[in-house]
Amino acid sequence: MSNTDNNIEELKRILEDMINEKIPIHLGCHRLSGMYHSGNEIVWYDFDEYYNKLNDIPLPSQYLLWNEVALEVKLKKLDEYKVQVLGMAEELLKEIRKF
């Protein structure tokens, strides 16, 4: 499998995990932003923009370090962007499946 094929498979996994809510949207955007900045031309810039809007929210591995009330307040911000981000994830996944 070529590097491009591996990138597409990784991209599909991240998008599917976001859509199926196996990972929160800010973690998905974090991973997609990394792929975008690593030169993956398939990843849309919009995911990087959403990551910038959501980067003040702790990642799941950091949840235990946060006060419960403060964490709840931060996580509510995810709801504001969930529909838009998941809609984009579904669109990009449909585009990728055409390859």
Rank of each mutant, 00 (worst) to 15 (best):
E49V: 04
K12E: 09
I23W: 13
M18L: 14
G28S: 09
K53F: 01
S33C: 00
M18N: 08
I14A: 08
K53D: 03
N55T: 11
H30E: 07
E9A: 12
Y36W: 00
P24S: 11
V43Y: 01
E41P: 08
I8P: 10
I42Y: 10
I57V: 08
Y51S: 02
N52G: 02
E41K: 15
T4D: 07
I14Q: 09
E41S: 14
L15I: 11
H26C: 07
N3F: 15
M18P: 02
E49N: 06
E16Q: 15
H37F: 03
K22F: 11
I25E: 12
H26F: 06
S33Y: 00
N3A: 08
P58E: 15
I25T: 08
M35L: 14
R13P: 01
I23L: 14
C29L: 01
N20C: 08
E9T: 14
E10S: 13
Y36E: 02
I25Y: 05
H30P: 00
L11R: 15
E49C: 06
G28T: 10
I8K: 13
N7L: 13
D56R: 08
K53Q: 06
D5E: 14
D46V: 12
L11P: 08
T4E: 11
D48I: 00
E16R: 14
Y36G: 01
N3D: 13
P58S: 15
H30W: 03
S38N: 14
M18G: 10
L27P: 04
N52Q: 14
V43N: 01
D48M: 00
K22C: 09
Y45L: 09
L54M: 09
P24H: 06
N55F: 05
D56S: 13
R31M: 01
I14R: 06
S33I: 01
R13H: 05
E16M: 09
R13I: 07
S38M: 11
I57H: 02
P58H: 13
D5H: 15
L11I: 10
E41H: 12
S33G: 01
L32S: 00
N55R: 13
S38D: 14
N55Y: 05
D5Y: 15
N7Q: 11
N55C: 15
E16D: 10
G28I: 10
L54H: 08
H37Q: 13
T4C: 03
I19N: 05
D56C: 06
Y50E: 08
E9H: 09
S38P: 01
N6W: 03
I57F: 04
E9I: 11
G39N: 14
E10W: 10
I8R: 13
Y36A: 04
N20T: 11
W44L: 07
L15H: 12
H37V: 09
Y50Q: 06
